[in-house]
Design a protein around this nucleic acid. Sequence first.
DNA 1: TCTACATAAATGCAGTTGCATCGATATCGA
DNA 2: TCGATATCGATGCAACTGCATTTATGTAGA
Lengths: 152, 152
Amino acid sequence: MTETAMPSPDAIKVWARLMRVSRQLMERAEDALKEDGLPPLAWYDVLHELAEAGEGGLRPFQLIERTLFAQYNISRLLARLEADGLVEKLPVADDGRGQTIRITARGRETRRRMWAVYGRSIAELVGAKLSLDELSTVSALLGQLRHPPAAD
Amino acid sequence: MTETAMPSPDAIKVWARLMRVSRQLMERAEDALKEDGLPPLAWYDVLHELAEAGEGGLRPFQLIERTLFAQYNISRLLARLEADGLVEKLPVADDGRGQTIRITARGRETRRRMWAVYGRSIAELVGAKLSLDELSTVSALLGQLRHPPAAD
DNA sequence: TCTACATAAATGCAGTTGCATCGATATCGA
DNA sequence: TCGATATCGATGCAACTGCATTTATGTAGA
């Protein structure tokens, strides 16, 4: 049986800062995109995965595994991306239920323009605030908090 | 002119883990509350601030300062809390525009029951994963990422 | 082969969020 | 004192989310 005592003040402080900082930074990054008339971060996540997947594309359920989106969320996000011509849906030969999602040239271009802004936000909000040593320390410690303790 | 180079791979990794870990942990904590039929975390944040404020209560705009909620969000959240009898709205003597929000006995009780679950989540998800040294290291480094670089 | 069950993806509905705006009161400057 | 401006909080509307369910196809066992 696992001990389930109440958290130490230090654990509470880490929790509070983690939640607060992640929300603040996310919001800053979203604002920067919005100011440039670009789509929200969620779009970037999907376009990024699809760009990495290349011409073969990905099945929606693979996107769910790779991102943190729920099934219904991916379903509707892909519908919006398709409506904007950033991805295309292809039938998949050996599974009549499914489809393969492939990024279009327009999708790659949008991703590129988003990265110009998003990357700058990351550089400013994280890269400029911590030394390389500190970055790798934080990265390792955050890695220990992953749940479930795996992938990345 | 500020240099706005693209982020280093280490900065990107910290960003990715920060966003991923915070979302995962938040979701776990929300799930735990839901399983016990308790209200969402947002309610806790507000009840917590109000409990700390004591009998004097707080004005809605003070809640906005202390939490990360938007004005319209607080407005509607308070309406729900009031509908559930967890807070009460009092007119404020020297400012006809405003009101003072005070937590009720029922509100304190709900907060207490939420903390039993929420606190356990924090203990399991953070306290059990890092040593005291690691906790204070993370806390300090996250502190450097605050934006704007202040309060907590 | 036929039935039961599992998986892929979409969708109806209710609740929530974001945005812009509004109504009301307060404050400040001429 | 009065008019312009600022602040407090609420709200209409459109978009988005979460949940449960649905539709369609695949798989496995009698």
